[in-house]
Amino acid sequence: MKVHLTRRYVFAASHRLHAPTLSDVQNRETYGKCNNPHGHGHNYALEVTVSGPVSAETGMVCNLVEMDEVVRRDVLERFDHQNLNVLKDFSALVPTTENLAEVVYDILKQSFHAVHLEQVRIEETMMNSFEYAGGGEPHR
């Protein structure tokens, strides 16, 4: 009985989209107002989906208290109320939400032992969201 379980979390962070390999003009053309020099912020919503068999003993795919604790410790504390650009994770990576989704997936892939990480989905605003289910080169 394989079931997917999704839990939603929120965190707030700032970023500026600027690729060092592009000229200032190209950055402006590519990223528009996301390239403003002093950055800006979002309330990100993170949906973490795990999957696995339902335990006959507990009726659960995973212990939610433990899942919350791992996400809080390894993701929320790391990114909430931070400027993404100055974090080590983005020292060589533009902090687009695409890249953020990959980074968060790679972190949780290492953190979750008891349950399979299926995908992460991040809403940057109500209008756009990004999903990553692994398959690329890990960033860390």
Partner: peptide, 11 residues
């Protein structure tokens, strides 16, 4: 809850 859901696709 709005922050918790499960998906089941059958076997």
């Amino acid at each position: 809850m709005p922050d918790l859901f499960v998906d089941y696709y059958g076997e």
